[in-house]
């Protein structure tokens, strides 16, 4: 095995544990491939979709229904004559946004909640964790539907400026606001382990405030597992949105998502199989990519296998 010595400039910068993890991740071909794929998907969905030659995803052409893939419509058209390719791009935007924003919300709530609970300990911790347990016991699906309605009603006015995204933003927050439970538990356990370490005592002896110790010294040390879990949460949220849409309580027209495309495609399973297969392919490949990336991150951030 070749061992490469750090170069002068690397030495000067110092290598953080994060940088080490990145170096390990780069060696994982599958994870890197997945990351490129996700990047590509993001570019296609958000940038290519804005280009002028992409058709309006909602433009109907009833004379050209169920057109098979051709030069005009590279992936064909659906039952209303809409271009499938552009519908996949715009649907992808929603699916990705659900994944990322809901995960972001979940991370924010979960880490803050878990960190405070773990650091406070004692009775505060017990009460905070019982709240989490209670929320766990309520069916996720029911809760998201209720929460979505609760958020959507009063926020309708404020969200108008978002245009076509206005009616899906509540969904993002509803999913995120419930997806944090596991993250809170993970973070709490980590914080409880780390707060006993000597460097926390040392930080206290330097006269730092409790908040500063918690969020500057303890929380960064817990981020590894949280990031891994979050990466695996993104596909599960995308999937969750798909099932909500499939049930008719998720995304509403004129928006679409991959879940809706798959649902519509399933109606024409026997005659126009490509309407199901093509969106399904985009959907599952993206989910695979997120899962592989999550696995890769877990290996890269695994403390037991790392140096020192």
């Amino acid at each position: 095995m070749r061992i490469s010595l750090p170069t002068e400039s690397e030495l000067e910068k110092g290598s953080s544990l994060g940088r080490d993890a990145w170096a390990r991740l780069r060696k994982n071909k599958l994870a890197m491939l997945s990351m490129c794929f996700i990047g590509l998907m993001l570019i296609i969905c958000f940038i290519v979709a804005q280009l002028p030659f992409i058709d309006d995803p909602n433009e109907q052409n009833l004379e050209n229904r169920f057109a098979p893939p051709s030069g005009d419509h590279i992936m064909g058209t659906d039952q209303l004559g809409r271009d499938l390719f552009s519908r996949i791009l715009f649907g992808g935007q929603i699916s990705m946004l659900v994944g990322f924003i809901a995960t972001g919300v979940a991370l924010l709530i979960g880490i803050t909640y878990g960190a405070i609970s773990g650091y406070a300990g004692g009775r505060t911790d017990a009460i905070m964790m019982r709240v989490v347990d209670t929320l766990y016991a309520i069916p996720f699906l029911v809760l998201v539907i209720v929460l979505k309605v609760v958020i959507a009603g009063p926020m309708e006015e404020q969200l108008k400026w978002m245009g076509r995204f206005a009616n899906i933003v509540p969904l993002f927050f509803a999913i995120g606001a419930l997806g944090w439970l596991t993250l809170a538990r993970i973070t709490r356990t980590q914080v409880m382990a780390i707060k006993e370490q000597e460097f926390v005592e040392a930080a206290t002896s330097l006269g730092l405030s409790k908040m500063r110790i918690l969020f500057r010294h303890i929380v960064p040390n817990t981020l590894g597992p949280a990031i891994v879990y979050a990466t695996l949460t993104i596909p599960s949220f995308i999937l969750f949105e798909a099932s909500l849409s499939y049930l008719g309580v998720g995304i509403e027209a004129p928006n679409s998502s991959w879940g809706i495309l798959i649902k519509e495609g399933a109606d024409f399973l026997e005659t126009q199989l490509y309407l199901l297969i093509i969106p399904g392919l985009f959907f599952s490949l993206t989910l695979f990519a997120f899962n592989f990336l999550g696995d890769g991150l877990r290996d890269a951030l695994d403390v037991r296998a790392s140096k020192d």
């Binding site: 110092g14 953080s16 544990l17 994060g18 370490q197 000597e198 460097f199 005592e201 040392a202 930080a203 002896s205 330097l206 500057r216 010294h217 960064p220 040390n221 020192d308």
Partner: peptide
Amino acid sequence: ISMIFQDPMTSLNPYLRI
């Protein structure tokens, strides 16, 4: 009043620069 600890290997935060 400041303090130095017994084990220097664990008294520094591994995630923060010196």
